[in-house]
Design a protein around this nucleic acid. Structure first.
Length: 132
RNA sequence: CCGACCGACCGAGGCAAUCGCGGGCACUAAUGGCGAAAGUCGGUGCGUGAGGAAAGUCCGGGCUUCACAGGACAAGGGUGCCGGGUAACACCCGGUGAAGGCGACUUUAAGGAAAGUGCAACAGAAAAGAAAACCACCCCGUCCGCUUCUCGAAGCGUGACGGAGCAAGGAUGAAAAGGCGAGGUAAGAGCUCACCGGCGAUGUGGAGACAUAUCGGCCUUGUAAACCCCACCCGAAGCAACGUCGUGGAAGACAACCGUGGUCCGCGGGUCUUAGGAGACGGCUUGAGCCUAUAGGUAACUACAGGCCACAGAUAGAUGAUUGCAUUUAACAGAACCCGGCUUAUCGGCCGUAUCGGAAAA
RNA sequence: GGUGCCAUAGCCAAGCGGUAAGGCCAAGGUCUGCAAAACCUUUAUUCCCCGGUUCAAAUCCGGGUGGCACCU
């Protein structure tokens, strides 16, 4: 099952307000476990999907830098997606840094932070590592 | 050879493999979800996917809604040498004037100050109608001093005071009412004259800006990116515009239907209508389009013929990761309705059919 | 994406072309046994940056940089 994007401002705000988060050198990750029966426009959100949003600040980077940051985060997330347990809203944010980090740094930090937040499925670890 | 000057062009540096993303077209036999079907989700294949500035939002349009549906004026805003180009422009091309450069060449918001008003601090005598006079200059008068002699007159003066003349010199200022030379004068002054500059008139050349010749009088500060005058132009807002659908909720209607009720009214449900917040879909990409040839034009550009759709259409916003190869190094930077310009940011390469200065050689 | 506004000392700010007001804070001094209050003195020389008009620009004009607000 593929992840849906987080879209609306109130959805991001809910994640920022009520989620648990973890911070690394270049990333901050917020994870919010949706309660059952959460509605959007009077339609039930399915409980077995992931929703994710990627964030980069407008202050230090131009549009090119923001796009680059989002691509790095999306690529790192794509490799880890099958191991993440469903029913969560996740926001991954690039911190304000002078130089953009390399992909290896972003991928490594994404895995560390997600495991610290305990949303990785324990059983799937071995399979994922063999894929890499 | 060195140093300049003028333009034109190219681009996520390239190629390959694997995984992954957006949208387009074709297929979807078997199997899977929904559907009566068309189809859609999914699947497979093919080709495709950021810029010269996409930026700033500084101008000009298209397009949409509103207003006016005709014309004129006013207000507000804009443009401003001349001619042309263009859908239009504050853009482009060609020319004129001015300024800069040895030169190739570059820059130029460049109408009107004699329609009127305002302002010109400080300094200075005086700062915008001709008036005034600080120092100095010149003349006259009185006094004072000296000299001479015929003894109350004459002459003289780095002298004092008063009056008149002058604006050439000094001094102030960004700027002092044309510049400079000669004549002239008590001293001086366009007071007179020559030349230069400016203004006006006439002639000639030019489509025009303007150039040039002759004559005239003798002058009129600067500022209009101060108000203004003149000529021409402009309705407003913007794709978060706007159009379609629109659960819930709101308002209105109900002849008939259901519940409550003995019946009517009423209430609740239900049905229909209206505007429409959230949301969805459309607007959304083929266009003042690109390439080639011919003709006109100095050029910008235009006309016509043929060819091409390769030239994005996302909707929290699509181009990434890893590995390998070769010369190993990439700046500014990411479409968001679409075009024409301007401005700003910026690396590397390439071209010379174009030109100038210097040096050397012939 | 679109629209509007602003930038003056450490802070708040005035400033219709002619030497950049004022308040708070700070520093120094007077006063006091010591403080507070009061009084006096001091601080802009790139008025966000670059260019232009003008004799003269914080002010007028053009371009840039940074910040704020609104449209959902």
């Amino acid at each position: 099952m593929k992840a849906q994007p987080l879209r609306f401002n109130y959805e991001f705000s809910r994640v920022y307000r009520r989620a648990s988060f973890a911070t690394g050198r270049v990333l901050t990750i917020h994870v919010f476990h949706r309660p059952k029966g959460l509605k959007h426009n009077n339609t039930r959100i399915p409980e077995d999907i992931l929703r994710v949003g990627f964030c980069a600040s407008k202050k230090t980077m131009g549009a090119v830098g923001r796009n680059r940051a989002r691509r790095l985060m999306r690529e790192a997330y794509r490799h880890l997606e099958p191991r993440i347990s469903e029913g969560n809203d996740i926001v991954i944010t690039m911190k304000n840094v002078d130089e953009l980090p390399s992909y290896a740094q972003v991928a490594n930090e994404t895995e560390v932070l997600l495991s610290r937040l305990k949303v990785l499925k324990p059983g799937a670890c071995d399979d994922a590592k063999s894929d890499d």
